[in-house]
Design a protein around this nucleic acid. Structure first.
Ligand SMILES: NC(=O)c1ccc[n+]([C@@H]2O[C@H](COP(=O)([O-])OP(=O)(O)OC[C@H]3O[C@@H](n4cnc5c(N)ncnc54)[C@H](O)[C@@H]3O)[C@@H](O)[C@H]2O)c1
Ligand SMILES: NC(=O)c1ccc[n+]([C@@H]2O[C@H](COP(=O)([O-])OP(=O)(O)OC[C@H]3O[C@@H](n4cnc5c(N)ncnc54)[C@H](O)[C@@H]3O)[C@@H](O)[C@H]2O)c1
Lengths: 247, 247
DNA sequence: CGCGATTTGTGCGTGCGTTCACAAGCGCCT
DNA sequence: AGGCGCTTGTGAACGCACGCACAAATCGCG
């Protein structure tokens, strides 16, 4: 949750009827959000020489309840063996298939500033099924530069270049003031999935998914619990134990 | 959701009974997660000269349902005026108080690499109630360097320095292989709130909150929906059919 | 060949979160 | 002063998600 997800399906014209539902049962959103975590844990287990894994062990590695994990896997018609567990390689293939990671998706990164630069050089993209295929920025000092083997193009060329580059997902790392305009361009370029790092709400047409990552929000949520802890029993009360401020 | 949150309270010894519930009613987690978004929207409205705002308008600015917003605000004993709306400045103060943002919390950043460097220079911290007070890394080439007015210290000094610096929240931006060790150090230093950017599950004692941000997971969730869309609607999908953007 | 140990898959109860819909309250206009 | 329109606050219904607990299935061993 916490991210806006434009409805999929429904609206578009006539009922799409047979969409080979056999292949893709309606996975609960909560399950979808956990599958990547399972996938990561599975890769980790595979790298450490394991062959099969029990739901209990995998759940521990992924930090979830084992019953929840089993139910999640059952949703995608999982192939576990009772009394044994799950075959890791098979499960990896299954999850990657469901998540659509069998084809490496192209990512366009817009805004190559502080954060964007770090993202452009991030190795975790490639190992997890993605490939940065295009960089865009508005700053003329950045346009033309090469970062990690990719040349930075001017953002005005986004709509022109993105489709040809095979962009499937757009990542916005510009200041909030530019985010909506960039989102509009991405949509115009046919991108239907956007990851937004700018602290603002984006308006997009139906059928376009937006997920948002906001560092400050995460910190503020932590702050709330911190505040709560110090107000309550007060565990160790670290550092400058400045007490609560009454209203 | 999506993040592991170690239980607060409960476990520790005898039932903590009275924790002055008068000041802080038990806010639902979902509400807490949305308050920062409301806060951001409110600041934006205040900056554009607004004085009061209706739940409908604020909800639109925050990208949520208006009924949900009203219920959220009602949980913290809000001060709206029927027929008028909410006074923005009052609401900002109220939310900041609940989130514990009246005192600026110190943040320690561990791992000043690609991502950590971007975070260290991020202005959004300061404007949203936080202050980076310490940087740590294990790389001797980085230790001693000054970034944004802060000197990078060796991570071995974390337990020694963090408490004195008034660190309330620890941010982990190291490789996953080092994350658990860093988390242990943060806990040893008395930090009870951790934001983890490394793609791994952290084990921490009860009473310590961990929130996780994993870029690849976000992309994979988007990938799922992308996969789903292309499987359903067929070719029609990506058409440049730019539709009107709801404003 | 049968039995026990183990682990999956799931039916079910419970609690949380979301949403609708409406009564109560407030300001403003006449 | 009184009524009218607008907005809040919330009661209630609904749906989803979580986790327990157990039956079914499989393997290994005696
Ligand atoms: N730096 C961080 O650690 C961090 C953390 C969380 C969120 N964010 C958010 O991420 C965004 C980027 O942060 P940053 O620190 O990298 O800022 P930055 O100023 O360093 O980089 C922004 C980049 O976007 C480019 N840009 C501006 N307008 C543009 C446009 N219309 N089209 C294309 N590019 C444009 C700028 O030229 C610049 O290179 C901000 O919204 C910020 O709030 C940053
Ligand atoms: N770069 C990104 O855009 C990005 C995006 C998402 C997630 N991440 C994750 O964030 C983490 C950091 O990514 P990065 O690209 O900055 O990597 P990086 O290698 O550039 O930086 C890691 C830093 O951590 C330091 N370090 C290593 N071991 C340490 C230890 N024990 N104690 C303290 N510091 C230590 C290293 O010296 C280095 O400076 C990784 O886990 C990565 O998966 C990065």
């Amino acid at each position: 949750m916490s991210q806006a997800t434009s409805g999929v399906g429904s609206g578009t014209g006539a009922a799409a009827g047979a969409t080979t539902p056999s292949d893709f049962p309606d996975l609960p959103e909560a399950t979808v959000a956990r599958l990547p975590e399972y996938l990561r844990a599975l890769h980790q287990l595979a790298d450490t020489g394991h062959d099969t894994v029990s739901s209990e062990a995998l759940a521990a590695a992924a930090g979830v309840n084992s019953a929840k994990l089993r139910k999640d896997l059952s949703h995608l018609g999982s192939y576990g063996t009772r009394g044994v567990g799950y075959e890791i390689s098979l499960l990896i293939a299954q999850i990657e298939h469901v998540l659509g990671l069998t084809q490496r998706r192209g990512v366009a990164l817009v805004g190559v500033g502080n954060l964007g630069h770090a993202l452009a050089g991030y190795a975790g993209f490639g190992s997890r099924g993605f490939r940065v295929v295009a960089l865009f920025d508005a700053d003329p000092r950045l346009v033309g530069k090469t970062i990690n083997g990719l040349v930075v193009r001017h953002v005005d060329l986004l709509v022109e270049f993105a489709p040809a580059e095979g962009v499937a997902i757009g990542v916005i790392a510009t200041p909030a003031s530019a985010a909506q305009a960039v989102a509009d361009m991405l949509v115009a370029a046919g991108v239907t999935s956007i990851l937004n790092f700018a602290p603002c709400v984006l308006a997009v047409p139906d059928g376009v998914d937006v997920r948002k990552v906001d560092l400050a929000i995460e910190l503020q949520i932590l702050s709330f619990h911190e505040h709560r802890k110090s107000a309550a029993g007060g565990a160790v009360a670290v550092g400058a134990g400045a007490e609560a401020l009454p209203r």
